[in-house]
């Protein structure tokens, strides 16, 4: 066991963990932040995407000890301060960007990263960026629409459904 300390959603946390403890296990099991999901556990699906020092990473493919001293942000910190949904989350609701919702935390975290780097992405850029986020309800069209809407763009040229 070794001690790890990091900032999660603005709060300093410190725990004893095993070397093999994944960041996602640390978040879910030690901190009880279960909004970050584990879909595949093989770095394919992206349900576990969180931000580490502002960058999207797959929390199932990073050890908790590697996040020593890092700023980690999870889906639990994405809502507005008054508890209402933020612009990306609200767009997912408005455009029905989720069906079962399992992939949604990772989708929102990835979408947020994309919009930080590229505030007005094209439809193709959104599709490319979400390569590592899999929705097994296959609700991709509405996810793309939601992200377009969250970036303040219309979707007149969207592919047919």
């Amino acid at each position: 066991m070794a001690k790890v300390a990091m900032t999660v959603n603005g709060k300093s946390v410190s725990r004893e963990v095993e070397g093999r403890t994944l960041l996602v296990q640390f978040l879910r099991d030690d901190l009880r932040l279960t909004g970050t999901h584990v879909g595949c556990d093989t770095s394919q699906c992206g349900a576990c995407v969180v931000h580490v020092n502002g960058e999207a990473v797959k929390a199932c493919t990073m050890f908790a000890l590697e996040a020593e001293g890092a700023e980690v942000t999870t889906i639990e910190a994405m809502a507005n301060e008054d508890g209402s949904l933020n612009v990306v989350q609200q767009a997912f609701q408005d455009y029905h960007g989720l069906q079962c919702g399992f992939c949604t935390p990772g989708m929102v975290m990835s979408a947020t990263s994309l919009l930080k780097d590229n505030p007005k992405p094209t439809e193709q850029e959104i599709r490319d960026y979400l390569e590592g986020n899999i929705c097994r309800c296959t609700g991709y069209h509405n996810i793309i629409k939601a992200i377009m809407a969250a970036s303040g763009q219309d979707m007149p040229s969207m592919a047919a459904e």
């Binding site: 770095s43 999207a56 990473v57 797959k58 493919t61 990835s110 390569e131 590592g132 986020n133």
Partner: peptide, 9 residues
Amino acid sequence: IGDPAVRNR
């Protein structure tokens, strides 16, 4: 290479 989250690690 990979996807954006993989490229960040």
